[in-house]
Design a binder for these strands. Sequence first.
DNA 1: CTGAAAGCGCTTACAG
DNA 2: CTGAAAGCGCTTACAG
Lengths: 358, 358
Amino acid sequence: VDRTRDDQPGDDRGEDLNRPRRRRTTLADIAARAGVSVASVSFALNGAPGVSNELRERIVGLADELGFRPNRAARDLQAGTSSTIGLVLVDLSNPFYPEIASGVIAAATARGHEVLISQVGTDERGHRDAVLAQLDRGSEGMLLTSITAGDAPLLKELQRRGHPFVQVYREIDDVQADFVGIDDFGAGTEMGTHVAACGYRRVAVLGGAEDSSASRRRALGFVAGLESGGATVINRDNLWGELTRASGAERSAAILDGHPDIEAFVCGNDVIAVGVYDTCRSSGLAVPGDVGLTGFDDMSLSSAGPFQLTTMTVPRDDMGRISTDLLLDRIAGDTSPPRRVVLAHSLQVRETTSERAS
Amino acid sequence: VDRTRDDQPGDDRGEDLNRPRRRRTTLADIAARAGVSVASVSFALNGAPGVSNELRERIVGLADELGFRPNRAARDLQAGTSSTIGLVLVDLSNPFYPEIASGVIAAATARGHEVLISQVGTDERGHRDAVLAQLDRGSEGMLLTSITAGDAPLLKELQRRGHPFVQVYREIDDVQADFVGIDDFGAGTEMGTHVAACGYRRVAVLGGAEDSSASRRRALGFVAGLESGGATVINRDNLWGELTRASGAERSAAILDGHPDIEAFVCGNDVIAVGVYDTCRSSGLAVPGDVGLTGFDDMSLSSAGPFQLTTMTVPRDDMGRISTDLLLDRIAGDTSPPRRVVLAHSLQVRETTSERAS
DNA sequence: CTGAAAGCGCTTACAG
DNA sequence: CTGAAAGCGCTTACAG
């Protein structure tokens, strides 16, 4: 189907999709038509003083008529700005990020900025490359959502060079910079307390990666809540793993092997919990009858149909909006001390945990 | 907490987050240091002929040392390009779009382009505004995912002005332009045939909006497959609605009211199906025992935990990648006739449909 | 092999 | 109130 025939000039089709593009109207075009200088046109169009009302109206009319739209590249070059911010995340197809991104785009658009999204994947050098690419593109600041301890030098370099950024959801301990997220330890503690209060005694905690501040604090919160509620965490020295369905399935299977009397799984996110459910299913274990199960994040999948997972609601859209507003303030010159914005979370007790008769 | 004290110069904090940014290194800086012209530096750095190897190495070394990174705005202004494409969608928090966006970003990045995402929401004027804003930003082409018949004039205007675009998932009948999507009618027919083959006889079809080409063809396919399989569509003249959970719940409740003997619901997407499940749940109807249920799209939520929805897999990531490649080809000057790229779908028979004893 | 110059489309002091 | 000019940081013919 590759019968391209570019040499045929008279190509007959309804619309000429790719005709040579008409040159865009510029200030100079308008100036020529109006018989004035480009400076006057610029002043007129930007509402700056320096032109009579009569001239201004004539120029605005002409601009309309010619379909004038300013060239951003030229304006940016002149102003030394770009009206663009960067959002760095692992991968948009991970359902945790889209809602953050949605909030970011909405907030940025409202303040006349565009958003460039970089997907860094799980690649090692991903972050650094993405940040540098963003700077090349002229991003005036960045929202960093997936940073780990190893990224500290990168963040410090950004600070040294004067490039604003906000840490979203995760933060790095020895960097003094803005942060917007939730109280992961507190939320984790609430969850652990809830599970213990249900009467579950022998509990496994399936956390995310230890080098993610959010995952670490959350898992530590789980443990604190469970233990203070009288439950036992049977895998205290083996809490960490991936935030994936496969990891949830594998880890829970291994734990069931060693501890057939396990009573509940407390998971670092909803996706892990889905994996645990897979294992329970194939092992013939009833949830929450035989084993309790909790997630974290409250994704749409965790309350669909018969799947009614006990989880923690995280205000992802707000996180996106608020971090964007903060970043734009910094870009605009706000030099107040670094801020930590902690948003409210909310426990959703659904059907995968229940009071135990014990 | 608003004790901003910008006037205190000696502000004591670990790192000075917002110190005045150091001016970026430019070609001129390097030229001055090397004692050559900016032209030579430009040639050297771009691997263009016109400089000796010795000079080139010296300049590259200097550029490295000074941390030179080219200014995109300047390059774009000069080249008359922006290396940016636009992706227009309803809302990233609708889980249908992120995977498309992920594919788009991956494919665009691989070819050195950036992606600007516009969320148009369900607003009437959204599309037109978003497209104009994209053009202002210098987007060299656009991926349009949410167009309806009413957008025909806008698309024709884009064609007239020579701005490339690709219709993704939805297409408009009387516009001759590139399209990447699936065979919705065919996929719908397969689904209808499957449901009829299970033995479900009295069936309701809960479609999306009639003015979306994808929703329309899909629903018409459902009807065709069901009827050719011997089933009856009890709401033939009332197929359309929103693609939301609430709509699924409401419409199914209304139908159950009028037709208590309904045997299956065939839904325009997974989210509607979740709403139908809500209704079945509160009505005490077993799925698939009392009533069969199918979705469309195969979102992650439709195979989580005990929810194992029969649905249709749509290659969203591929859709994003392929439409991006096509668009970039157009931008690069490909003037071959408009293309329709139809991707493969795949029926997922899971647990919400089953053979009826009948 | 190398450099001086023009130009991309804007904005903004600076003169008239 | 208006215009001529310089400059943002690049690239690319055009001369030496």
